[in-house]
Design a protein around this nucleic acid. Structure first.
Length: 251
DNA sequence: CTTCTGACA
DNA sequence: TGTCAGAA
């Protein structure tokens, strides 16, 4: 067994790129034990340990430029803080990924429900929903990029959420689901609903009138106003047509 | 065939 | 960070 290994061997051993090793040298954090006549860098056991140390600091999000001072002047306390910060960051990433996972589940689920159904009126049970008001549209006023921008900041993850339109005294209240303080609460219960795939805005008014007529004809006991829910994330499945669901709580 | 340097996206 | 050319 030889005493020293080449840069590519070190790279293989430690799962980093050759380029990265030269970069470390440029930044003054890892030097070869010596170089040969042909200018090849050679590394020994000591360099392997040192590289491990560097790679660990990298995992703790220490920028390469600061590793130098870090390795020379850091005490045990500093490393503790480093680990604490790193832990917090990892936990935040996990939280984000969990939300991402939930979102994917939601989209898959809703899409699967969609293809089975035939766009008829149906009844389903919905849990309570806490809605926060974003802003209101005056009657007849259409949603535009402009008024979305006017009312910034937009709710978090706008395009991943169900936007609820509550009609109220000639206004359309634009709401989104929230975990904390709610402006409106949609109670748990059975909801008559129907999916809408919409190309032009006026179709919505027509469908709402249709539902009112349907409800009257079947003598449902409506316990709330009609709610329009926009599911923008479903548009990708259907030729970019806007996807809505109209709902009304029934007995 | 491997590595080095330097440059560039 | 990866890639590429030209040289050793």
């Amino acid at each position: 067994m030889k005493e020293h290994i080449t840069i590519s061997q070190l790279a293989q051993l430690m799962n980093v790129s050759v380029h990265q090793l030269r970069y470390f040298e440029e930044k003054g954090v890892l030097y070869p034990s010596h170089t040969e006549e042909n200018q090849y860098r050679m590394y020994g056991l000591h360099e392997i340990y040192q590289l491990s140390h560097i790679l660990l600091l990298r995992k703790l999000n220490v920028p390469v430029d600061q590793i130098q001072e870090c390795m020379t002047s850091y005490a045990a306390d500093d490393y503790n803080q480093l680990l604490e910060h790193s832990l917090q960051k990892v936990q935040a990433e996990i939280a984000n990924l969990k939300m991402h996972e939930q979102f994917i589940h939601k989209v898959l689920e809703e899409h699967n429900n969609r293809t089975q159904q035939d766009d008829e009126y149906q009844v389903k049970r919905l849990g309570p929903r806490h809605l926060k008001l974003w802003f209101a549209l005056e009657n007849g006023q259409e949603l535009t990029a402009g008024n979305l921008f006017e009312h910034r900041p937009a709710p978090p993850r706008l395009f991943e959420n169900d936007l609820h339109y509550l009609s109220d005294a000639g206004q359309a209240k634009l709401c989104y689901e929230t975990a904390d303080v709610a402006d409106y609460i949609l109670e748990e219960g059975n909801y008559l609903y129907k999916h809408l795939s919409v190309i032009e805005e006026p179709e919505i008014d027509y469908e709402i009138k249709q539902m009112e007529r349907y409800v009257a004809h079947h003598q449902y006991n409506c316990q709330s106003k009609i709610v329009l829910v926009e599911k923008s994330y479903l548009s990708m499945f259907d030729n970019n047509k806007l996807q809505y669901e109209i709902q009304v709580k029934v007995e």
